[in-house]
Every structure is written in structure tokens, then in C-alpha cells.
Computed example of a mutant assay.
Amino acid sequence: MEEFETGYQRTAVYRTDSGYLWVRSPGPDRLGGMVEPGPEQRAALTAHTPRGMALRLAEKVDESLVYRVQGCETAARVAFGWQGGADGLERLVSAAHAVGRSLAGLHADVLATAAESSPPAPSRVIRWMSTEQGPRGAAAFHGVLHTHLGPARWRRVLRWCQEFAEPGHADTVLLHGAPSLGSVILGSEGAADCLLTGEEVSRGPAGYDVGWLVGEILEWDMTASAPENTAKRAAARHVGRALLGGYGTLPDTTAVSRAAVLRVLTHAHDFAAYRGWHPELAQYARSLSRLVDETCAGTLLASSGLLQNP
């Protein structure tokens, strides 16, 4: 068995005769429990035939969500621990392309009416930005981020969060809600990869899902910013281009870029609030200022190397 835990969520991985069980449970600081797909959502997702990677739904057991899968390693672990092997990069590129295809199919094929609410992360960030309150290092990061962003950027980011938190959008689709490399389970011994799905199924602009993953890839690039990590940064961009290539024609790139910024901000907030303060969060605050400016200029995806300049 393997376990990892934050104040927001506990995860345990168990080996079974038929594969693995991934068990997610609420952490001590989480407001509310784990949410499984409702009957309409489950029916719609079960009937959907993915175009790329399979979507794996959970079963609710007591206070936990249990996923039955065929792997014990996430794409996030491989990505952030990547040391330059061609095999590992090829695996990540293949998985990213398949996730892009899956998200495109989900957005195109499943009716948005299967979900009623917007993604939960923007509302969580809005509460924190508006009140400064939260456990552990949340208040400290609030002050550092406000200082680095300045009032104008701060108001702009808050407005982006509020727009994503509103359920009505002209381009509303059914969203995965929180696609991430940490929810991509790489199949063991030739088994198929899968994307854990259902906890944050919601509705909103398609760019939100794409941007959520783009933000995670931007973080990979940020954490490999030292000169000796040139190969790792190139790998991150290669994986990001595979994701966008798998998705195909991008939705509104403004929404993609804004969601990417929100993903980086949400992860930094969650680290501060659910694990504690770390000096690296100051670097995140500086990077977020740059990402906000690039988003406002419409250059984020090109500047990050994920798209060619027009």
C-alpha cells in the first residue's frame, strides 16, 4: 500500500488480484466531503465512448471515492521526476495526446445539461482572495501574492475566477472539471491508461478543462527553470503541444490562458493552505504576475512554447 496526504485530501493505493484500488478521502481541512457523479452524470459518462483515454469513474464507499484501475503510477509522478529518458517522455507525450482527445470528445459528445454547477475551484479561490482566511500558510501566501500582483492584476484575476464560477456561458459544455497529470493513471504491464473522472464534473467553457491541464504543464516548466534543466523544460513543452494537438481545434484561447493562470494559482493556494508555507511560493507569486501579463497580452500559449507565434 502507498499513501500520501494533505489537509485537503488523502490518497491510498492498494494492490489487488485484479489491479489497483485508488482510494481518495477528504483531508482534515477540507470543507465538505468527496463528491461522486450524480445519477444523470454517471449515466451520461458511462454511455459516452471516449475518443482517446478511457474515463474511469469512482464508487462511493463510506466517505471515500474508490477507483478500480490497472496502474499504480500517475503521469504527474513521471513528469516531475523525469530525468531525461526517452521512454518516459514518449509515454507522457502519448498520454497527453490521448487526454486531449478525450477532453475534446467529452466536450463535443456529452450534453452540458448532465451537470448543473460550475467547477468548484474558482469559488474556493474567490473565498480566499476575498477574506484572506484559510489554514496553515494561506494568509501568508495571500499577502505575498497581493504584493507581487498589485491591485490591478489582483482585481483582474479575481474577475476571471468570478467569470468561471458563473454557471451561464454561451459556450457551455460538460467539463471534466479538474483534469490533471495527477489523475492520469498509467497502465502497468501494457494495460491501458485512464483518466480518473467524476469528482468535479461541472459545466462551463471548454477552455477551462484545456487550460487546467496547460497550467499544470506551465508549472512543470516553472519548476525546471534552472539552466541545467533545459531538457526538462523542453520535455514539458513537448508534452503540452501533444495535449493541444490531441484536443485539435482549440476553444477560446483567452479562456484557456485564464484557466491556466487559475490552475497555477489554485495549486499554490492549496499547497499553502493544505501543506503549509514554503519559500518557493514567493517564486510562484512572481511567476503568476508574468503569466497574468502574458494572458492579458494574448501571448501566454505562444510565450510558453505550446503554440507557434501567429
Rank of each mutant, 00 (worst) to 15 (best):
G207C: 08
L45F: 03
D87C: 04
R42D: 01
A236G: 05
V66R: 03
L145P: 03
M53L: 15
R24A: 12
I217D: 02
A115H: 10
F271Q: 04
G298P: 05
A44F: 08
G88K: 00
G19R: 07
Q162S: 09
L158A: 07
V239Y: 05
A95C: 10
P310H: 01
A231G: 11
P28I: 10
L92G: 01
A165T: 01
L186W: 01
S225Q: 13
A191Q: 11
F80V: 14
R290D: 11
Q283R: 10
A242K: 05
V13G: 01
D171M: 09
L111G: 14
A54V: 11
R241V: 15
S183I: 05
L181P: 07
V78S: 04
A58T: 08
S180G: 15
A12H: 09
V210R: 01
V99K: 00
A273G: 07
A259Y: 09
W160H: 08
G168K: 02
A170C: 06
G81L: 13
S118R: 12
V201D: 01
C194A: 14
L307F: 03
A115T: 08
T49G: 04
G182K: 12
Q308P: 02
I185D: 04
D221Y: 04
T49V: 12
P122I: 00
T172V: 14
N309C: 03
D252R: 11
G150I: 04
G276F: 05
S18A: 15
K60D: 03
L288C: 01
R290T: 07
R275K: 03
G276H: 05
A165V: 03
R56P: 02
H278G: 06
M222W: 13
E189M: 07
T131M: 03
A285K: 11
A139I: 01
N229C: 13
T11N: 11
E199N: 08
V13M: 05
L103G: 01
T253Q: 09
P310I: 06
L145A: 09
L250F: 06
R290G: 05
G204Q: 01
Y247P: 00
T16A: 10
S123Q: 14
N229T: 06
A138M: 06
W82Y: 14
A170S: 11
G276N: 07
V184A: 12
P167I: 10
A231V: 15
W277S: 03
W160F: 08
G204E: 01
A226C: 13
E166Q: 11
L111H: 13
P135K: 04
D221R: 07
I185S: 10
R275T: 15
A86T: 09
M34Y: 04
Y14F: 10
G204I: 03
V210F: 08
V13E: 00
